[in-house]
């Protein structure tokens, strides 16, 4: 009964960074609390009232002391600020080369899809020693994805993507919690994260039932909704901008602003096309709000991302003056996306 943990397991590369900060601030808290308590108790006894009419010494203060006990706490909290910011920076800098999983939260479950297409609900299997990034969204209310053993947490919102990354360092099973209150079964929106050796993970992947990968599902949807009547995926410009090589690129909007076409921009351009019009195009596209599922949207975004990024095509950025000014000369990068065979047939 009295065998209970006081400290959580530490199983990611990020965890020791957070723990170091924790132990330091904990020591600081303990030191100041004890210092103040001891000083106060000591004076409480030493200067207790011994005679009824006794009064205290009329000491009014000391500017020097005020400066000392303002500057010292200031320096300490600044140290914490910079240290904390540095750790935070590591936490929010999502590595480009990480394996990307899609996570969809809904009342009250976590739906997870591996890059190869495997689907899981409330469980997450990951290989040890590999950078994993989760691209997450919610179908309804706000949730939050928390793995205590990895010291990582990120809110999961409806209508946009948020990301989280980790690299597990220890095999085993760990808690997955929802930490943003989300309704009746909030405390049941939990799961298990299983960290496996790399070869075990490969076996696990091989043994599972494979659906199509997010990119393939996205491509299917692209066909199904006939997106290609307006959007070329090869670099030509039809009524709408070509989707080739746009992910991660900046573009100039009709109102002159420039935006980075990240996952959130792509998603918004599907559900609310009129909200951020690319310069030089007419507002013709209907809204797909509510017509495509959250997972479908994630798949479409994954598909568009697979059509290349700024590495392949960086001519698309900027000059919004010409309506057909989108460049046509990135066919060179085409070879990479020819896995999308049917797409060009239509």
């Amino acid at each position: 009964m009295l065998d209970f943990p006081l400290f959580p397991e530490s199983a990611s590369t990020f965890a020791p960074k957070v723990d170091a900060l924790y132990f330091f601030t904990l020591a600081l808290t303990a030191f100041f609390t004890l210092l103040i308590f001891a000083a106060v108790l000591f004076m409480f006894v030493k200067y207790r009232r011994t005679e009824e009419n006794q009064v205290g010494d009329p000491i009014h203060g000391s500017t020097l002391l005020e400066i000392i006990w303002s500057v010292i706490p200031f320096l300490i909290v600044m140290l914490l600020f910079f240290w904390g910011a540095q750790v935070f920076w590591v936490g929010v800098s999502i590595p480009e080369d990480a394996r990307e999983y899609l996570v969809t939260g809904k009342q009250w479950m976590w739906k997870i899809q591996h890059p190869e297409g495997h689907r899981e609900i409330n469980t997450l299997h990951v290989p040890i020693g590999e950078k994993i990034k989760l691209t997450m969204t919610s179908e309804d209310v706000i949730h939050s994805f928390f793995i205590p053993a990895f010291r990582v947490k990120q809110d999961v919102l409806p209508g946009r993507y948020t990301q989280l990354w980790f690299e597990a360092t220890k095999t085993g099973e760990y808690h997955l919690f929802c930490t943003e209150y989300c309704g009746a079964e909030h405390s049941q929106m939990i799961g298990t994260v299983t960290v496996m050796e790399k070869d075990e993970y490969q076996d696990w992947l091989a043994g599972g039932i494979v659906g199509s990968s997010p990119v393939a599902s996205g491509e299917e949807l692209f066909q199904q909704y006939a997106c290609n009547t307006c959007h070329e995926n090869s670099g030509d410009t039809l009524r709408g901008p070509s989707l080739k090589g746009i992910a991660g690129n900046a573009v100039t909007l009709a109102d002159g602003a420039s935006v980075n076409r990240d996952e959130n921009y792509l998603r918004e351009s599907i559900v609310r096309p009129s909200s951020k019009m690319v310069a030089g195009y007419q507002n013709l596209m209907p809204t797909y709000q509510g017509q495509i599922t959250e997972e479908g949207l994630s798949h479409l975004v994954a598909y568009i991302k697979s059509l290349g990024s700024e590495a392949d095509a960086n001519e698309n950025s900027g000059h919004g003056s010409s309506d057909h000014g989108e460049s046509h000369d990135d066919e060179a990068a085409d070879a990479e996306s020819t896995e999308s065979t049917e797409a060009s047939a239509e």
Binding site: K17, V18, L21, Y22, T25, L26, T29, V77, L80, F81, W83, G84, A85, Q86, V87, F88, V90, G91, S144, F146, P148, R151, V152, K153, T179, E180
Partner: peptide
């Protein structure tokens, strides 16, 4: 102050 420390709050927030 611990909770206001960015890196720590990732883990402690909403616990």
């Amino acid at each position: 102050v611990m909770l206001g420390t960015l890196g720590l709050d990732i883990h402690m927030h909403d616990t």
